[in-house]
């Protein structure tokens, strides 16, 4: 069995809204519920940990009841950084494997979750090809990176809990900051992380325009699929 950890600690600064984006309505329902409903339909997931601000727990509990979410839910307090939030979520996990996801990626299909779960490797991430040129440098270009060697990391990801916890403990000890977990594991050479092909529709809702794009993705990709 596997635990899904949903990162929902964002404060919505870039959306310029007092309500964090993951609780705003997207295609008629709170963004976070898109992922949770699909996760709830997967029998291999027997536990969901939501990492969020304490003040949102009661609203989330009500939502779980309204949407008849039957997978047991636990809450973990959001940290000051993403890295701290993941670590906080891991403290509540009772399985050996974790599916790490973020509430701001609402367009992951049930089949996408199943692909990760059914991978025999324990540490797996989605990676999507980069369709544009990426350069190194801020004011002037120092180098051009080879697109063929690069991937855009997409959540969800699957990890062995003990490996990921060890990576976090090493990062804390070394006072190193990471914005993503697969790179943390590989930096410390704790395990290989397999990349499987991601999808163009798995966008992260970050700015107001993403809501407009998101409505189209919902209409064209999500509707009509179980």
């Amino acid at each position: 069995m596997i635990t899904a950890v949903i990162l929902s600690g964002g404060k919505g600064v870039r959306m310029k809204n007092v309500v964090p984006k993951q609780y705003l309505l997207l295609a008629g329902k709170p963004m976070i519920m898109h992922s949770i409903e699909r996760i709830d339909s997967i029998p291999q997931i027997n536990e969901i940990v939501i990492v969020c601000e304490k003040s949102f727990e009661s609203s989330l509990e009500l939502m779980m009841k309204q949407y008849n979410i039957t997978t047991p839910i636990r809450f973990a307090p959001a940290g000051a950084t993403r890295q701290e939030s993941v670590f906080s979520g891991l403290q509540k996990v009772s399985n050996d494997l974790v599916l790490l996801h973020e509430a701001a990626r609402p367009f992951v299909l049930k089949n996408d979750f199943l692909k990760l779960i059914n991978e025999k490797e324990k540490n797996v991430t989605f990676g999507y090809e980069i369709p544009f040129t990426v350069v190194k440098g801020k004011e002037i270009i120092l180098d051009t990176l080879s697109r063929d060697e690069l991937k855009n990391i997409q959540l969800p990801q699957k990890f062995e809990v003990k490996t990921l916890l060890k990576a976090h403990e090493m990062a804390q000890k070394n006072n190193e900051k990471f914005t993503e977990d697969a790179s943390m594991i590989t930096t410390y050479k704790l395990a290989d992380v397999k990349i499987i092909n991601g999808n163009s529709y798995n966008i992260k809702i970050t700015e107001p325009i993403d809501f407009l794009v998101g409505e189209i993705i919902y209409r064209e990709i999500i509707r009509g699929r179980k």
Binding site: G28, Y218, I222, R223, G224, R225, K226
Partner: peptide, 8 residues
């Protein structure tokens, strides 16, 4: 019809 088609 619109709202529930996601669920089949």
């Amino acid at each position: 019809t619109e709202e529930l088609s996601e669920y089949g």
